[in-house]
């Protein structure tokens, strides 16, 4: 009985301590942003690994999500004779929710896991310690470019997801379901508000990008420097960032709309 309570307490303390270390790391990184912008080659290289290489999975997923939305929405709307609003349904679901959230989840799986594994392995093979020996700050040299690349990439990936999803929905509704193409766009333009929907979605994805990148970088940096530790850290990044994206999305949605 006592030991159960004790393990709960130990767990809570460990979580609290880790969040504290994550905050310290975040402040360290934010303070180093000016120097990192001056050495932009490192940032560009990470943008390639984190952003560009995530593009294929984002585009393919978005195409299918858009088509499924159109198909499923059509089945419901046709009962009310409102199938002409299909474009609006697809566009609103994608700009407000699915674009940022699914791009965030895919990013966490594709790039977040890789970031954690890379940094964890650098720590396990004592490369980070070696850098410190040479008076190179690993936070500035290794962690910050990866964090910034994630923060920049996720909003771009999210709006690409949204746009490709809308085009996927267009393909299905116009070519397969026989909805007029002019109606598809005009209903959408009438109902989607730039500030309310597009900009709020973009803001959401920025929050997700910062959240996932911070988690991925921190968990890798904080991992136990053993093969098992790196494996556990990679799993933790994917699980934790996916759950947090969904939870934060709920609270952001309830505040915004």
């Amino acid at each position: 009985m006592i030991s159960a309570v004790r393990s709960i307490g130990a767990f809570s303390l460990a979580v609290l301590a880790a969040s504290g270390r994550a905050c310290i790391l975040l402040i360290q990184m934010l303070g180093n942003i000016p120097t990192s912008v001056r050495r932009y080659e490192l940032l560009v290289e990470q943008l390639f690994h984190v952003g560009v290489l995530t593009l294929p999975i984002i585009i393919v997923a978005a195409l299918f999500v858009g088509m499924v939305l159109a198909l499923q929405g059509y089945n419901t709307l046709v009962d009310f004779g409102a199938e002409s609003s299909l474009g609006l349904l697809v566009a609103l679901s994608l700009t407000r929710e699915l674009g940022p959230v699914l791009a965030g989840l895919l990013f966490a799986g594709r790039a977040g896991a890789a970031l954690t594994a890379e940094i964890g392995l650098m720590k396990a093979t004592e490369q980070l310690a070696g850098m410190e020996m040479m008076a190179v700050d690993p936070v500035r040299r290794v962690l910050l470019p990866r964090f910034l690349a994630g923060v920049i990439s996720v909003p771009i990936l999210a709006i690409l997801f949204t746009a490709v999803g809308i085009l996927g929905g267009y393909l299905l509704s116009v070519d397969v379901l026989g909805i007029d193409q002019g109606v598809y766009w005009s209903v959408m333009q009438e109902g989607v508000d730039f500030q309310q929907d597009v900009l709020n979605g973009l803001f959401k994805s920025l929050v997700f990008g910062a959240l996932i990148s911070l988690l991925a970088v921190f968990i890798g940096y904080d991992a136990r420097p053993t093969p098992a530790g790196v494996g556990a850290a990679t799993t933790l990044t994917v699980v934790l960032s996916s759950l947090l994206v969904l939870a934060v999305d709920f609270s952001l949605t309830s505040m915004m709309f």
Partner: peptide
């Protein structure tokens, strides 16, 4: 190209999808 694509898509979303 990645960054430019992002900007273009934002323009697409603002003028084609929403009513800016």
């Amino acid at each position: 190209l990645f960054v430019v694509a992002g900007i273009l898509v934002l323009l697409f979303l603002s003028f084609r999808v929403s009513n800016l």
